[in-house]
Design a protein around this nucleic acid. Structure first.
Lengths: 197, 197
DNA sequence: ATCCTACCTTCCACTCTTGACAGGTCAATG
DNA sequence: CATTGACCTGTCAAGAGTGGAAGGTAGGAT
């Protein structure tokens, strides 16, 4: 459902073609709600069909500039004020952390080290972005900057957390690798309960 | 791709039926990688077909307990050590922040207030969870706790960020509502460029 | 003895997302 | 003039995730 509103939101700022929108998705929204061409054009079609968006101008090579309609703006406002955001968050990084037990403590800390490294790199990239953009006092500047700050804080958290986790594992290694070997043997016993299909 | 490895990871801990796995997904992995019945059973079927998992025992009412095979364990290790995690993160919350400009500053701060509230509530829920579980020194305890700590820190960040954002908006409101009205009029002009379809 | 509840698996229809492919036009450069 | 590159729209196949329906069994409580 969110992609629909992302498109509406961008068109609320100013009218644009699918091509224009793609550039916006690749720049400003890349870290918040990525989207592909097929999605954007598809969504524009659906929005036009339902009257929340309409072709405001046609340009050179088949270019169609879309503008949000009153209906679309109403829908956007309704989404922002009267619906609960979908807060389900999937984190492959954390999923992996859950299963770090199948590795040796050394391998586990190596993984977390890469996480810390990634977060640090990602954070400096955001800082560079912050320096690049010229922040005016328009909506996109004010509110986009709030998002950027969130990203900055998140990457800081990520790095510090990863370093903290490494310390913890090194302070109290969960289990010796030898015990893991034992467990593998146990599993093999299980497997003999029934012959392979 | 990750769901496959989530299932493998859980089965690496101990063998289980689809039903058992569902309970694990609802409890331990709920905040990290949610999954539905259809997904879990489907994935078990595919994993069994590819030999990474096999039926270790059959129980009372059609119950089938699956166990990870050596192949599956190898795949799990490979995933953990030799592949890059998918770090794309979608945040509907932040997406909305980008478009807060279509609302009045008052409405915008109200939204962020709800975010702060949600984060606070969510954080105390995690703290309660932390108190409930008895943390041993096994893998799931050690590594699961690292994930929980991440969640705790994230919710703290979320709340503080939302409060900070509210302050910022109140200190320097982006634009008066009156100007937004003007903009709507401009958009109406655009719409007259072409009659509705 | 019956009924309820928890247990347990399987299938389906739908939307979202990805990645790639196909096709075409304008503008400038050599 | 021919080629190149940026511009611009569209479609399709396949996988991932959602939500719910269907259908059946074992065990315990009344």
């Amino acid at each position: 459902m969110s992609l629909r509103h992302a498109v509406l939101g961008l068109l609320a700022e100013r009218q644009a073609s699918g091509y224009d929108l793609m550039k916006l998705f690749e720049t400003s929204l890349a870290n918040v709600w990525p989207a592909t061409q097929s999605q954007v054009y598809g969504e524009l079609g659906k929005l036009a069909a339902s009257g929340q968006v309409e072709v405001a101008a046609e340009g050179p090579r088949g270019r169609k500039e879309y503008a949000i309609t009153e209906e679309g703006l109403a829908e956007l406002r309704h989404w922002l004020t009267s619906t609960e955001p979908d807060r389900i968050r999937r984190s492959e990084t954390l999923l992996r952390v859950f299963f770090l037990g199948v590795l040796t403590p050394l391998e586990a800390t190596a993984y977390l080290g890469l996480e810390a490294e990634y977060a640090a790199k990602s954070r400096t990239a955001l800082e560079r972005l912050e320096g690049t953009v010229d922040w005016g006092d328009d909506d996109m500047s004010v509110y986009g900057r709030l998002s950027l700050e969130y990203g900055l804080r998140l990457m800081t958290l990520h790095e510090e957390w990863a370093k903290w986790a490494i310390d913890r594992i090194q302070a109290a290694p969960p289990r010796a690798a030898a015990e893991q070997e034992d467990e593998q043997d146990v599993r093999q016993d299980h497997r003999q309960t029934e012959p392979a299909e």
